[in-house]
């Protein structure tokens, strides 16, 4: 079984879209709990050994989002207490917590998404939709480090000429803008050289073929079918109302019906899919350690 990050980028892309999409649009506390759990595990497993400095920020965001709702929504039958004659209700509070779980879990899914779907993989996916758009994206991505280097050169030469001052904010801004304008002039002329070179090699004269190092294997097909099957079970149960859960005016709806349990199970499997390889890798790592220890 290939590592999850080694699957075809289209499969990984669809995986993240479905797993985050389901969390975004199903306001069911159990589904969202599973989603947050899976998102955190997936993200942690990608950043093993590294300390996550931003976790405090996300806890703060979670609390802010959770407590914001009862301050603005006063419907709900169970009044907890009053602030300025406005009732704070249990239902609004719970809705706030559910919403906050949704937002934070989706943000974590996208953080893992950014780690797994690096620029080249995303370009591969975009290239399937529009090769021209994808070419432009990859050209711009290449220009950014080039421009950063050139901007440093411009700054150095302006400094050497005595045209750079950073004594106060206004000078720094003015210098930055001047340098930026120089950069723009240089890069446009430079771009024309690129164009000449592309046209000399026959760009636009025929159908383009392009190289990609990703193939679509049977493993990819199997994974794709598994993802789509699990997703459709959850969507069908949602469409049949098995996952409906009401907050206003009273908390209502059964969380643990048979149909809902099936959907929860499917969603849990879906959420844990990226871990298949982690477990394998962990085993491999331990084996390696043991071998190294023996030597």
């Amino acid at each position: 079984m290939p590592a999850f990050s080694d699957y075809n980028p289209i499969v990984v892309f669809i995986y993240f879209l479905t797993v985050a999409g389901l969390a975004m649009f199903i306001m069911n506390p159990v589904i969202l709990g599973i989603s947050l759990f899976g998102a955190l595990i997936c993200f942690r497993s990608r950043t093993r050994g590294k300390k996550d400095r931003s976790s405090g920020l996300f806890i703060g965001l979670f609390l802010l989002l959770a407590l914001l709702n009862p301050l603005f929504h006063h419907n709900g039958a169970t009044v907890l207490f009053l602030i300025n004659d406005n009732p704070i209700t249990l239902e609004a509070l719970l809705y706030g917590f559910t919403s906050a779980t949704m937002v934070v879990s989706v943000i974590y899914w996208f953080r893992s998404f950014s780690l797994l779907m690096t620029g080249d993989r995303l370009l591969y996916v975009f290239g399937k939709v529009s090769p021209k758009f994808s070419l432009m994206l990859s050209m711009s991505l290449r220009y950014i480090p080039l421009f950063a280097t050139q901007a440093r050169k411009i700054k150095a030469s302006r400094k050497a000429l005595g045209l750079w001052k950073e004594d106060n904010l206004w000078d720094a801004v003015k210098g930055g803008i001047r340098g930026f304008i120089c950069l723009a002039g240089w890069s446009l002329e430079n771009g024309i050289i690129t164009v000449d070179s592309m046209e000399a090699r026959g760009y636009g004269s025929g159908k383009r073929s392009f190289y990609s190092r990703y193939s679509f294997s049977l493993w990819d097909l199997g994974m794709l079918i598994l993802i789509l099957a699990l997703t459709s079970v959850v969507i069908v149960s949602k469409a049949m109302g098995a996952l409906d859960f009401g907050f206003y005016p009273r908390i209502g709806g059964e969380l643990m019906t048979g149909a809902a349990a099936g959907a929860y199970a499917c969603y849990t499997v879906l959420v844990l899919l990226p871990l298949g390889q982690i477990i394998r890798e962990a085993g491999y790592g331990r084996e390696k350690e043991r071998k190294n220890g023996n030597h």
């Binding site: 432009m136 050209m139 711009s140 220009y143 950014i144 080039l146 421009f147 890069s187 446009l188 430079n190 771009g191 024309i192 690129t194 164009v195 592309m198």
Partner: peptide, 8 residues
Amino acid sequence: AIVTIMVA
């Protein structure tokens, strides 16, 4: 190419 440069 000009558009990609403006993006960058």
